[in-house]
Amino acid sequence: MEQFIQLLISGIAQGMIYSLVAFGYNITFSTSRSFNFSHGNFLMLGGVVGLIFFINNQVPFLAMVLAVVFVGLIMGLILYKTSIEPSLKSKSNYAWILATLAFGIILKNIVEVFWSTDDFRFDSPLGNAPIRIMGIGVLPQEILIIIVAICIVVAVESFKKYTIFGKAIVAVSEDKHTASLMGINQQFVILFSFLLSSVIACLAGVLVAPITMVGATMGTVLGVKAYAVSIIGGLESGYGVLLGGLIIGLSEAFTARYISTGYKDAPGFLILILVLLFLPSGIFGKKIFKKV
């Protein structure tokens, strides 16, 4: 029983990391119909920056988080200017996929060349000793991940619901021309969504670092699984990514435990393909009527 609960919690924690990355796809897809196909590498960058500041240089935790946020903002801006803006202007409807893939490859290679190709341990500031909740040992970092991930999603969704700028974001997602008639600068809203999504990915990197290792390749697979999460939850549904994360995280944890570690990725991708075949706009997605 104890093992089962532990498995449940680490599955949820892993799922919440996927959710955070997927949430980044979600935020920008709704405003611009595009997202960063190399989002996982932004997560990696967050982990690396966190490691350099917090572990290597012993900078206080909060200062490190600020540094990570700052790096996220800068990288988001560069991504937008070099890959997204020109793609949205170009006629090709898949330019953004290729451009962001290229951006990610460059980013990853830069980290490998100028930093390291090795993986490093990142000790949790909360320690590695399990704490006991109702007699069951749980890793504190996993609890932290779950809480922070849910807080971030709820905070962003509330921001969209309750502030005027947040409403403007929703308006742009729904109809950018009419939004601009309200005086909303849609380009700025799109840029903002990319900055926000980049920052969240970088934060996710710091969060996940203690349960994985930190290295240039840490983001690739995470980013890919997060596609599955965002599509299962519905690319346009904010809270849907939490459910998507749960599905993938748990299916992975249980497959690894009860079937085989090697097959842990398989059920997630199978679910993805099934969802796309039968519910093309995700579990929580909206139906879109296409007019000819």
Partner: peptide, 21 residues
């Protein structure tokens, strides 16, 4: 072209987006 997913009140608030800002 009302913002269909949003409430009536939110639509009106968005009409005054620039004034609120």
């Amino acid at each position: 072209k009302v913002f269909a997913s949003m409430s009536v009140k939110d639509n009106l608030l968005l009409g005054a987006y620039l004034r609120i800002r």
